[in-house]
Write a protein that binds this DNA or RNA. Structure first.
Lengths: 205, 205
DNA sequence: TTATAATGTGACCAAAGTGGTCGAAACATA
DNA sequence: TATGTTTCGACCACTTTGGTCACATTATAA
């Protein structure tokens, strides 16, 4: 049983989010356990009661993130959808959902891989298979006949992916700070829809 | 005369790049003057001989960046090019050029605006006009008749911009670490070309 | 050459921050 | 009441912080 599972709901998420944020923004070395406990609203002792030390906390976070991405993200992707843009819509919405509750999840992961922080035992293998699954989720078994045949399929798919990621990032910056409740989800979904339709018109035949 | 101008070539760029990197990665508060002097290869005293204090160094960097972006980036954009994608090509190549010599320039600026660091006197106004000029450089006087008329021009332009920015970022990550000399500029340009042509086929009539 | 000014240095400082400990308090269960 | 589980923050030894300053080194000028 992972240590993070012992902690009940609120406090658990508080620690996770505080630690994710701190590690993401500062990296392992510069991350301050003092800041983490302050942000999480717990005493210093509590952190080191549940986690052996800073490294242990970091390793637990990695494990936790792998779990979330596997179970809440990759596991929910419908690999049978042959329409590339529809699949991207699915992936984007799923990502947005995860990102809404765990804002630092994906960013944390990206940072760790970029800065090549030393990973805990066995995590490397898990991450590798995750990345393969992610690639498969995006590109495998796509119906290429839907694309205009005067276009290079692969380049088209890359361009579409970059477009959607760009839209996503712009969206995240726009809604940053706003509370979950105040978000007009329906309107946002419609807006996203119009962009996807534009893409379909441009790239499909 | 700005302080940075007093310093001759090599040492000047060393300080600029070291400081840009440190401020970009850590933000103003966490940025360490000790690290900066070590990276720049100068003595601690030298830094504080040219700059009154940490804040002064930061302010000078902002001024310097504004200058570079104005003179080496915005000033070279051909505002008369009516073809949107051609204009984006121009902007992208220009950006790549600046980014090659000043890798932290744009990223530094973005970080400062996001984290809302306090800006020196008058810089806010300059930055505002810069952003307006940047927007104009991208969107003003574009020949909209080139787009397919079953597409929303504005959405199409956004999608194209996101695509190109995505390609750019992927390119930067790919060539990160490689030396300037080892880069095969011609091949890269051709590759970029094919992506732009795909975009033209998809979005133009 | 010598005298003066400009440029460059790193040991040093008080203050703040670091990861981690520990005895005591609060709480739960019985 | 007694026993075990959580929670806490003052405290520790140690590092790093922005900034200073007495002293080199170099450039300029007489």
């Amino acid at each position: 049983m992972k240590v993070l599972d012992q902690l009940d709901g609120n406090k658990r998420m508080a620690i996770i989010n505080a630690a994710l944020q701190e590690f993401t923004e500062k990296g392992f070395d510069k991350a301050s356990t003092n800041h983490i406990v302050k942000t999480a609203g717990i005493g210093k002792g509590t952190l080191f009661y549940y986690f052996h030390n800073k490294q242990d906390l970091f390793d637990s976070l990695i494990e936790y993130c792998i779990g979330v991405i596997q179970d809440d993200f990759l596991a929910h992707i419908d690999f049978t959808e042959p329409d590339f843009i529809e699949r991207m819509r699915q992936v984007a919405l799923l990502k947005l959902e995860v990102q809404h509750e765990q804002p630092y999840m994906f960013y944390f992961f990206a940072q760790m891989l970029i800065h090549e922080e030393p990973l805990p035992e066995g995590a490397k293998a898990q991450i590798d298979t995750m990345q393969e699954r992610n690639y498969a989720a995006l590109y495998n078994n796509v119906d290429l006949t839907m694309f205009r045949d005067d276009l290079d399929h692969d380049k088209a798919m890359e361009l579409i992916r970059w477009s959607i990621e760009g839209y996503q990032q712009q969206l995240l910056e726009r809604i940053k700070g706003e509370s979950i409740a105040s978000l007009d989800f329906a309107t946002l979904t419609t807006e996203f829809e119009t962009y996807l339709n534009t893409l379909k018109t441009a790239f499909y035949q």
